[in-house]
Write a protein that binds this DNA or RNA. Sequence first.
DNA 1: CGGCTTTGACCTGCGC
DNA 2: GCGCAGGTCAAAGCCG
Length: 618
Amino acid sequence: MEKQGRRHHISPKLFHHSVSDCSFNASDDGLVDATNNTSSSNPSIPIPIPIPIPIKQLFRQTKEIKEMDFFSDNNIMNDDADDDEEPRRQPQQDCNNNPPAVNTGLNLLTLNSGISSTSASDIHQNSNNKLMTSLQVELERLHEENGELKTMLDQMTKSYSQLQAQLLIAMQKQAQNRLREPIKCEANGMLARQFMDPRPSAAASIDHVRDPSVAYSSGKTPADHEAFSSFGPSNLNIEVMSTERDQYQRRLQTNINCAEEALDRSSQCLGSPNYTSKSSDPNLFDDDNDEPKRSTDQEQVPVADQIPFRKARVSVRARSEAPMISDGCQWRKYGQKMAKGNPCPRAYYRCTMASGCPVRKQVQRLAEDKTILITTYEGNHSHPLPPAATAMANTTSAAAAMLLSGSTTSKEAHQYHHHHLANSGFFSNSQLPFFASSMATLSASAPFPTITLDLTQSPMQQFHRIPPPSSSTFPLPLHGYHQLMGGPGHPIPGPTYFPPNYKATPPPAGVSLGGQRSTSTHASGMIETVSAAIASDPNFTAALAEAISTIMGAPRPHQGHQGGININDGDIANNNAARGLVASTNNSPPSANIGLPPGSLQPGSPQLPQSCTTFSTN
DNA sequence: CGGCTTTGACCTGCGC
DNA sequence: GCGCAGGTCAAAGCCG
């Protein structure tokens, strides 16, 4: 199905060209038949989609098609198996034999008509045969070339996977080393998490699942800071007992894909019941963990389940007169509340595209500017999404991934993040030079880590944008969001921008991220780097980018500046969010489709994993 | 009649 | 312990 769909997606243009060209050049029946033959054979031809077709090649295709129709009969006879290759290769024939090809074409036309009239000369046939032979040779050559390219792609994919695995292992080891210290320091044997977990429930002591969001919101005491800092980046997403870390690491090493799955799954887990403020909603956790993580269950729980359940939110600010931005999903309003300090009510929506879908969103207008609609997404779709919805989902997913990775400064999170996003297709178009993003801010004061994507301001406005003083925010580069919102036709062609004067509002007292991180005595390596950067430099993004660069072991996309704040197009219409679009980043791994589940949906490519379709919540 | 919206009640967490 | 605020539930009403 997909293949055919893809094939139709690609070939119809060619076919269309060929038809029009043929019909235009000659109304000959033979030509039309040849074209039809070509088209009919196309649907059965599998096309290797991942390999982008160069524009030149496309040109050659269209150019060739005229003559491809010419030889369509022969082509069909000679090569039925490679329909997708046909159009590309035939053009080359033309290119190679172009000057004579014109005559050849005429001759062929004559020949075609002559065939019916049985007046074709042997000379023409011989020349045609020669041409066909050369064409076949050329086709074979192109086949081989294509095969080599595929092989290269596969190798790159494998290499990337291997590197990723190695990186994860290395980071895991590093994390393990760091974990020992903090745990040892806790004489009572309690996890650092317990210190920061305000919940009175004893489950907190049992919980092996970190609750960073709680730390974010409630880590106000020095102990909490310390505890939170002990959850340094190296701790990754895994806050497990020391006895379980090895096991986790083993599992991690065993199957690197589990890492991604973990992120995916964790993203689907809106939060453990003992972690979220609300557990009364059965639907919310139906597909996730219905039970709080306990030590007894821990060992049996898959790696994915051990990932901390962190409730992340992605807030999108957009100007819209409509009561709700169209993000491609179906929503059902289940509540409305008057929020304090805002005359506009806050509406609560639940995704109704599938029963049990945990995704919810809140819609509220900004009190200061009622034309601005604030849509806050929460949760992860448990069902396939239409392309339009996937666009927004990918955006929020990317934002959340960035949020989580940034807020936790987790190496794995970064790793997962990059890999995840790459696989999601959100960042998959590595060939695109654009590195678009929107202004994104992270809120540390919110009950849940929230990333805000502000699409209401023009690039220049955002350039000098000042974060809302009421919230603890810092600039966060969000790749691709801009393109999602603006569409492929509105990418930011130039380098990304970083507001020189941009200054993130320091976190409020008691929620000082920098203080938390800097006080960590266990942080080292990247953690220290990031922590120090955070503490000393409000430009967290710069530090984050640096850390990511270090982690990834590869030069991070320059983004045109250090710290890379990308400015989105202020002309982006709110509803454009629903236009599925591909964002790009230089960060995209060579194999953007690594581990891409079949059900995934990518703008312009296969569907993303469901877990990728919306923002992640660990 | 089914689906959706409205709206008051209820639950929970948090601050004082 | 109490009050507040956020979030959710569920009954009632509306609409196509």
